[in-house]
Simulated assay, not measured.
Amino acid sequence: METNGDQFAHHTIVKKPKPLICRSWSENYDEVEVPGTPKTPRTSTTPGHEKCTFHHDLELDHRPPTREDMLPDMARSYRLLLSSLGENPDRQGLLKTPERAAKAMLFFTKGYDQSLEEVLNDAIFDEDHDEMVVVKDIEMFSMCEHHLVPFYGKVSIGYLPCGKILGLSKLARIVEIYSRRLQVQERLTKQIAVAVTKAVQPAGVAVVVEGVHMCMVMRGVQKINSKTVTSTMLGVFRDDPKTREEFLNLVHSK
C-alpha cells in the first residue's frame, strides 16, 4: 500500500488484468443537480435580476452575493433565533454569537461557492494503463438538510481509468465540494461518483460513504453508535461482481 502524504486518506493501486470498456460521460450518466439550483440559468434579463451585481457583460450564471454581503442578514437571523429561544442576545456571552454563527455556517456550506471545473484545475493526466485506483478514509463533514445539524464520517472512492487519471488530492477536493453543502448522505454519495465520472470518464466508479448523523445521536431515537453506509456503483463496478468485490475488500482492509 502506498500513501499520498495526506493524513486523511490512503490510496491503493491494484492491477486489473482484463481489458476495460471505456464509456463516455454523456452516453451513460445524467448529471445530478444540486437542489435549489435553477434548471435555467438566471441572467440580467431575468425579471428581478436586471441590476444583480453578479451579472456582468459575459452574462454569467446567477450566483449569490459575496459572503461578506450575506453576513449582516444572516447575523440578524441568528439574533432573532436567540431571542426566540428566550435568550438575551445582548449578554456578554452571546454578544458576538450571531456574527460568529453566520461565519461558521458560511464555512460549513462553502461547497456552494465551488465548482468541479475550478477544483480540478486541469489536474487530469493522460496515462495508458488499466489499474484500479482506490482512495479510502477521506474525512467528510457535512450538514443535514433536514435539521441543520452535522453529519460526518469517511468516504472511499475507486475508479478504473480509461486513459486518464486524476490527481489523488483532487478526489478529496471533490468530496469537499459536495459535502460542504446542505445534504442527505444518499445524494452526496451519488454526486461524488458522478463528479469523478465527469472528470475522467473511467470504465467505472465506486463510492462508499460511512456517516454518523447527529440528528440520530442528539435527537429522535438518540442512538449514539449508529452509522449509515451508502454506496454508488457505476460502470464496471455495477456490472461486474468481481470488480465490485475487489473494491469492497480493499475498502474494508486494514
Rank of each mutant, 00 (worst) to 15 (best):
E118F: 08
L71W: 00
S169C: 07
K15C: 07
G48P: 11
F237V: 05
E27D: 15
Q191E: 05
P65D: 07
E118H: 09
H55S: 10
E99D: 12
E68L: 08
M74E: 02
L58P: 00
R79N: 12
L182V: 08
P65R: 08
D239T: 02
V119C: 05
G235H: 06
L166S: 08
T66K: 15
K16A: 10
R180V: 04
V119K: 03
I192A: 01
V32G: 02
E87A: 13
V212F: 05
F141Y: 15
Y29F: 15
K16W: 14
R100N: 07
G220P: 01
E127Y: 02
S44Q: 11
A104M: 14
Q92N: 11
G211E: 00
E59D: 11
L188H: 04
A199V: 03
Q114V: 03
T228I: 12
M214R: 04
T3A: 06
E176K: 15
P72H: 09
N88T: 07
T45C: 06
D128E: 11
F151P: 02
P202S: 09
K170S: 09
A75T: 06
H11G: 09
N121P: 10
P161F: 07
A195V: 03
T53R: 14
Q7Y: 13
H147S: 00
L94T: 08
G93R: 14
A123T: 04
C215E: 03
R42M: 15
G86I: 13
H10W: 09
V14P: 02
D73L: 11
F107T: 13
N88K: 09
L160M: 13
A104W: 06
L171A: 11
V221T: 07
T12E: 14
V207Y: 01
K15Q: 13
D6P: 06
H56F: 13
E68Y: 00
R67F: 00
Y112V: 03
H147E: 01
D137I: 00
H213K: 05
V251W: 00
R76H: 11
K242G: 00
D73K: 14
V208S: 13
D126C: 05
R23A: 07
P35F: 11
I165S: 04
H11R: 13
K198E: 13
M70A: 12
G153A: 06
L182Q: 01
Q114C: 03
